[in-house]
Amino acid sequence: MSRLTANLLLLLTAAVWGGAFVPQQTAMRVLSPMWFLVLRFAVTLVVMAPFVLRETQRASRPISRRGWGAMILVALAFLVGNILQQVSLLTTSVANAGFLTSLYILFTPFAALALTHEKPGAAVWPAAALGLLGAWLLSGGLGGGGTIGDLLVTLGAVAWSIQIVLIGRTMRAVPRPLMLVAVQAAAIVLACGAWAMVMDPISLDAIVTAAPEVAYAGLLSGCVGYSIQAIAQRHTQASDAAIIFAAEAPFAAAFGALLLGDSLGSGQWAGMVAIFAAVVLVQLWPSRPEAAPAEAPPAA
């Protein structure tokens, strides 16, 4: 596979992940956030099961207790990020959620500094300021038009940044990516399922009505998106992948406008431009060290 082909596949993946914000929101017309997460990742878990089994059979050694502990930490960060992102969509738009989620690229160097003592590059400081300005504009600025959803999705971006750092460290020690995907999905199914069965009513009609959204998020965004990422990133540079994945945010905004009729004010458009510029700046600055492939952004 050529580098161009790999990059085009990664762009397709960014489009799939950006488009996932729409079914994540529309499914909540009939499902609670927790039930949507349970059903979405149950689909991912079931479909991934045979591939995880094959990976386990081919493994040269079993996963150690320490390895399982590292995977569970990754899964906890993944769980928090997904819950905050999903609940945020009750009160924020698809466009806002997509762009505010992209702030994890700015938060990741700070998470790496805290967790692994890796110092951020010089570009991080101006990019962080630009990104925070963009987030402020996107959430309403001086007009005060921000919502609790904007705050939740921004906090979720912090959780995603922690997950990115932990994935890099975990995959270097335990090279079992499909098992990690399964552990993350299982964590959401168990934790969100326990809450949903006690707190949130559900009906068979609701599940049937939301089946297309669940299928998209569970199959395309989860299984297919992760698989394309794993294959394509073997044939391109990590810096290429990170920049391409930043396109997830404008794809989310485009799908929200086309399918849901989301409209944005001039200040919000300015905020989107500022966030996207910050993302590109932190990736293109010459002194920035190249990130490991395992540290690519997460799916929506």
Rank of each mutant, 00 (worst) to 15 (best):
G143V: 00
G225V: 11
A299D: 02
Y216C: 05
S239N: 10
A135W: 11
L151M: 11
L133F: 12
V198S: 12
T108K: 09
T56C: 00
L284E: 00
V189S: 12
L260E: 05
Y216D: 10
V282N: 14
V52L: 09
A27R: 04
N7Q: 14
L190G: 01
R169K: 14
S2Y: 02
L113C: 04
L142A: 15
G98E: 01
V208W: 00
L178N: 13
L115R: 08
G222D: 08
S287L: 01
P33Y: 04
I244G: 04
L73T: 12
G256L: 05
L103Y: 06
V124A: 14
T56E: 12
F107E: 10
W285K: 08
S239A: 07
L155A: 14
G225M: 07
E118S: 10
L12S: 13
F110E: 03
S203T: 15
G225Y: 10
G271A: 00
L180I: 12
A274P: 09
Y216A: 09
L39T: 06
A128E: 10
W68L: 11
A70I: 01
A241M: 01
D240R: 01
F245W: 00
F107H: 05
P289W: 06
V43I: 13
L103A: 06
G145I: 02
R288L: 04
I202Q: 07
F276M: 10
L100E: 07
A123C: 02
S161G: 11
T147D: 09
Q163L: 03
Q85L: 14
F255M: 09
A277N: 04
P293Q: 01
I243D: 03
L264M: 13
I63D: 10
L142R: 08
A6F: 04
T170Q: 01
E118T: 13
V165L: 07
V94T: 15
T56A: 12
A77K: 10
Q24S: 13
W285C: 06
V80E: 00
L138N: 02
V181I: 09
V174L: 02
L106P: 07
L133C: 13
I202C: 10
W195C: 05
L204A: 15
V52P: 13
A249I: 05
G67P: 14
L53W: 13
L100G: 09
V153H: 06
G218D: 05
L113N: 00
L152Q: 05
A123N: 06
A274C: 15
V16D: 03
V87K: 06
A242G: 12
W160S: 11
V80T: 14
T147E: 00
S263G: 13
G98C: 04
A194Y: 03
G140M: 02
A77P: 11
V80L: 07
A182K: 04
L9G: 14
Q163T: 08
E118D: 08
A242F: 03
